[in-house]
């Protein structure tokens, strides 16, 4: 498909029109945070690079998602619930596009989860590339999630006065066609795109002392590292890191009853392996009781288990967990310290 170019003014116009007729969500800055929110006008969109407080996966796997409804007053009736509300998500960053591609691989390709699939079929993803690192916590370049080969409907790159638009799907094509003012990209545009990409390399230095595909071996060797005990002592088991992580998808399944006690709903709600109850069984025994084991499990899931099982990065280097950890537990430092064993000093300085 031929790439397009659209001026910034035309894009804003287009988004204004789009937001007037459907649900458009985009990063909105308020105080120190950026959040994905419904927007009414394009002017509300923030172009700050900081990853949003919660990742856009909140639209595909909501923190509390109804799965079924049941009534028991007239026989028993069970109705599965599939959300079909249309959403256009604008301004999804490369790291989050990688995370969503992972969720697709798990919930669609592997699990055929109709609840996820239905939401996924009704969301349009308009990505925006990053040309400079968001802050000191990001390490997307090291996780090789800065380049986005697929997984978007449209992908925009800032060329200064205009955006270069890559089309990733037929849906994206339809959308860009409705964006009347876009023109076909020509040789010079592609040169400018390449320059923009090339200029990133200087800005995005490698933050990890290992490549992402060396993490599984590193973590496997580090099972007995003292670092886990050090981190276990500090960790508050507050679940902040897992709640904000774009690749975290663990959940609990629970029931609620209606007030007439004749019906109710079954739902899933985000859960966290950092919480004590997560691995507790019927006998009251927790299989991951020491905090150090829980922290170790999280980093293994991020750096190793997911990659081994699904062939995709289980951590996309967005740095959200580090930004949200009150005691400074930070994947860059954790991975680098494991690499530089033995560990003596603690992480927080």
């Amino acid at each position: 498909m031929i790439d397009r170019v659209v001026t910034k003014a035309d894009l804003l116009d287009f988004l204004d029109r789009l937001a007037a007729e459907r649900k458009v969500v985009a990063p909105v800055a308020e105080g120190p945070l950026v959040r994905f929110k419904d927007i009414g006008r394009a002017a509300e969109i923030s172009d700050r690079y900081l990853p949003t407080a919660l990742p856009p996966s909140k639209y595909l796997l909501p923190p509390k998602e109804l799965l079924l409804r049941f009534r028991t007053d007239d026989g028993v009736a069970i109705e599965p619930l599939f959300d079909t509300g249309e959403i256009v998500a604008f301004g999804v960053r490369p790291c989050d596009l990688h995370a969503l591609a992972l969720l697709d691989a798990i919930f669609i390709d592997d699990k055929h989860d109709g609840h996820y699939l239905s939401r996924r079929e009704h969301i349009t993803l308009i990505g925006v590339e990053c040309l400079e690192p968001c802050d000191e916590h990001c390490f997307c370049a090291s996780m090789e999630t800065l380049d986005v080969p697929s997984g978007y409907d449209l992908l925009l790159t800032d060329l200064g006065d205009a955006y270069y638009v890559q089309i990733g799907s037929s849906l994206g094509k339809t959308l860009v066609e409705s964006l009347g003012a876009a023109r076909d990209a020509v040789y010079e545009d592609r040169t400018r795109l390449r320059k923009a990409h090339d200029s990133r390399h200087a800005a995005f230095t490698r933050r990890l002392d290992v490549t992402y595909d060396q993490l599984p071996a590193l973590l496997a060797e580090s099972s007995d590292s003292l670092l886990w005990d050090v981190l276990g002592e500090k960790c508050l088991s507050c679940g902040a890191c897992t709640n904000v992580c774009p690749t975290c998808y663990c959940f609990d399944v629970r029931d609620e009853v209606d007030l007439d006690l004749e019906g109710g709903r079954r739902y899933r709600a985000w859960d966290s392996c950092q919480l004590e109850e997560f691995a507790m069984v019927g006998t009251g025994e927790s299989f991951r009781q020491p905090r150090s084991m829980r922290v170790k499990h999280r980093f293994n899931r991020k750096g190793r288990y997911i990659l081994e099982r699904y062939g995709r990065q289980g951590c996309v280097g967005c740095g959200r967990c580090a930004r949200n950890c009150l005691v400074g537990i930070n994947p860059i430092e954790v991975f680098n310290q494991l690499k530089g064993q033995p560990v003596e000093r603690t992480v927080r300085t």
Binding site: A101, L117, E121, I123, L125, S150, D153, G172
Partner: peptide, 10 residues
Amino acid sequence: TPATVHRRLK
């Protein structure tokens, strides 16, 4: 349907 999603609703 987005290009990445081929499967019918299950």
